[in-house]
Simulated assay, not measured.
Amino acid sequence: MDMLKESWLDFFRDSHEGDDWWQRKQRLYHARQAEVVRISGRGHLFEVLRYSGGTVCRYLLHVAFLIRHHQQLIREEVVVPCQFRLENGVITDHRIAEQHPRTKPEKPSIDMESLRNSRQERFSYDRRAAVQYAERWWNSYNPDYPTFDVDCTNYVSQCMRAGGAPMRGMPDRGNGWWYQNENWSFSWAVAHSLRWYLSGSEAGLKGKELESASELIPGDVICYDFQGDGRWDHNTIVVAKDADGMPLVNAHTDNSRNRFWSYEDSAAWTPEIQYKFFRIGE
C-alpha cells in the first residue's frame, strides 16, 4: 500500500477506466468554464483477496479537486472504489472497481385515497439543518441508521429528516415515508420509490416538481434515471450553488461532495438520462 500511496494518481490515470473517468471530469469542467487548481487524494485499503495467481486488493480512493469557477473556489470531493492485482510484488490491472448494482425498484405503493383524506399538513423545512447533516455525513455513516450497499436514498432521507420532514405510514413498508426501530418504508431507502413518493404525496413530506435544475436551492432533491428507462436509480441532495447558479450536490454509494448536479462525469451517465427536480417542503 505504500507504493500505491506514493503514486496513486499516476496508477489511476494509467488505467483504461481511470483515463475515461478523468476525461469525463475534464469535459465537464471545460463545459462549465471551470479550472482545476489542485488535486489531492488518499487511498484506504478495505479488502484483500488472495488466490493462486496473486492477490486482488480493493480500496477506496478519496479524491479532492480544488476548482476555480469564475471567481468562486469549490472543493469537490468524490470517493471512487478501485482495485488492482498484486503479482510477484508488481501492481497490475489497476482499475475502477465494479460499480454498485443498480437498486432493484419496488413498485410504489401509495394509498391515494388515504392521502386525499389526510389533513393537508405543512411543515417548516429547516434547509440549513438538512445541508449541515449532508455535510457532516457525506463520507461516513450515522450509526443511528442502517447502512446499505446502495445507500444514496437512505442518506438523502436522513438529510430531509434532519431538516424536520415529518414521517408517516409506519409500520406499512409500502405506505408513507418513515424509519422506525431498524425498519423503514420503501420510499426511505429505494431510489425508485422515493421519486414516486415525492411526486405523489399530498401530506407530510412532499415534493414540488420544478422545471429546471437552476430553480433548486440547498435542501432540495434530484432524482436520476440514468438509462432513461423509467427505472429511477439514484438520488442526491443540493448543498450549494455554483457561480452560474447551478446546483452542487452531495450523495452516497459513490460518496460525493459538491459534485455538479448533472452527473455527466459518472460512468452511469448515458445520453438518455432523465432527471426530476423536487422542491422539498412545498
Score class of each variant (00 low, 15 high):
8 W>V: 00
9 L>V: 01
11 F>W: 15
12 F>I: 03
13 R>M: 11
14 D>S: 11
21 W>S: 04
23 Q>N: 11
23 Q>Y: 07
25 K>T: 08
26 Q>M: 13
26 Q>K: 15
26 Q>Y: 01
28 L>A: 05
28 L>D: 00
33 Q>A: 12
35 E>K: 13
35 E>I: 14
36 V>H: 00
38 R>L: 12
39 I>E: 07
39 I>D: 00
41 G>W: 09
41 G>H: 09
44 H>F: 14
46 F>K: 07
47 E>Y: 14
48 V>A: 10
48 V>E: 14
48 V>S: 13
50 R>F: 05
53 G>K: 14
55 T>H: 02
56 V>I: 11
57 C>Y: 03
58 R>E: 13
60 L>Y: 04
63 V>R: 10
64 A>N: 12
64 A>H: 14
65 F>T: 04
66 L>V: 09
66 L>T: 03
68 R>N: 14
69 H>C: 05
69 H>Y: 01
71 Q>C: 05
73 L>M: 10
74 I>E: 03
74 I>L: 10
77 E>R: 12
78 V>T: 03
78 V>L: 13
79 V>Y: 07
81 P>W: 14
82 C>M: 11
87 E>C: 10
88 N>E: 13
88 N>F: 06
89 G>Y: 10
89 G>L: 05
89 G>A: 08
90 V>S: 09
91 I>G: 08
91 I>N: 02
94 H>S: 04
96 I>P: 09
96 I>F: 11
99 Q>W: 04
